[in-house]
Design a protein around this nucleic acid. Sequence first.
DNA 1: GTCGAACCCATACGTTGGTATAGTTTCGCG
DNA 2: CGCGAAACTATACCAACGTATGGGTTCGAC
Lengths: 213, 213
Amino acid sequence: MNDARKSAKAQGNDMPVVYVVDDDPSIREALVDLFLSIRTEAHAFEGAQDLLENADLQRPGCILLDVRLPGANGLDFQLHLEKLGNRMPIIFMTGHGDIPMSVRAMKAGAVDFLAKPFRDQDILDAVSVAFQKDRDVRQQSAANGAVADLAKSLTRREHEVMAAVVQGLMNKQIAFNLGISEITVKLHRGNVMRKMEARSVADLVRKAELLGL
Amino acid sequence: MNDARKSAKAQGNDMPVVYVVDDDPSIREALVDLFLSIRTEAHAFEGAQDLLENADLQRPGCILLDVRLPGANGLDFQLHLEKLGNRMPIIFMTGHGDIPMSVRAMKAGAVDFLAKPFRDQDILDAVSVAFQKDRDVRQQSAANGAVADLAKSLTRREHEVMAAVVQGLMNKQIAFNLGISEITVKLHRGNVMRKMEARSVADLVRKAELLGL
DNA sequence: GTCGAACCCATACGTTGGTATAGTTTCGCG
DNA sequence: CGCGAAACTATACCAACGTATGGGTTCGAC
């Protein structure tokens, strides 16, 4: 089992994985077996610390988390992961949870909150939703990242010109606002279009919106 | 009380209102009093039917709903409202709820799910959040509606030209695609800009995105 | 110091966009 | 039938855009 966990950190697989976190070894094993039965990779962890140290949280997939963790609270761990910038979808399980707990978890973005006992199918459905959510987030994030990378190659002036262009200002207006000549604006503008790989102003507007302008 | 309810349907107030739905008269009264104490308009209803018939659900505000309604299920009522196109935020209360209930409600977009007994402050906080959510939704909806109204005045051709423009096509390309001359495209394009009240292509792109293009 | 990056400007030329004017055709409606 | 809306076209003209060429300054890094 230790080998299996280590490999989870090492390999850069594209198939989604389920990280099971529960302090009960028999439950861990049962869940991992359940996922293996549908040919889905799964790895078990004893607690939050174990997960953080031994799992590759950058991989596509989701976390199946018992609310009551040894040492830490599952809900706090959820917030902790978010602070770390981790966006892996989380599904909670609990044997002794209550309504406020579940509400708090769902408000914080949990995919589901399953009260034991639950059917295998409930887990599988939740994981399926979590996988889809992860794919969506990753796709969005990849698109944003690609645009952000392009934007990094812009100089300060080019940034300013781009901002003005997507506001719909004319070259002469941009020139006046920046205190430079119109011909220079055209120069920067051309550079922006090339660097941002935008084939039209409409294209540029959409890419700029991904940057939050 | 009946008068107060009627007036709720009649007047077109801009201040947000809370519609309390609970089958227990003493709870209804206590909650309405609570909201009056913070100068917030509130009206009580016995059940789903009562609410649908006697409340103005187009007003800004939110619904405070007991999960166990006489006759109907609160969660089903939530879905029913959504099918009716109503977007009023819902806060659930319950004395005998369970976790699956709360999870289902939150998944369906409920603002909160409060298990009795709860503190007055919990209710007030939830209502505050619900009011804010309602304001946000309404603001977004108003912006969309305004653009949609403008778009209604476009002819079919103008629509087609707009779609092509926001794709970043040049006039000559648009002309070729539509099988018309470039000068005609310019004509339509000018009409589109005027009717959509867009002062630049960037402006038009953003408005078109609100229309779902 | 010299090299490159960033920034700036000008002339020149061609393309694209925008508007105005004026006219034709088609089509649905009262 | 007559009328208006929608769609289309043409000529003409001006504004805005885009790029190429050539050259200038500043500033920090090597």
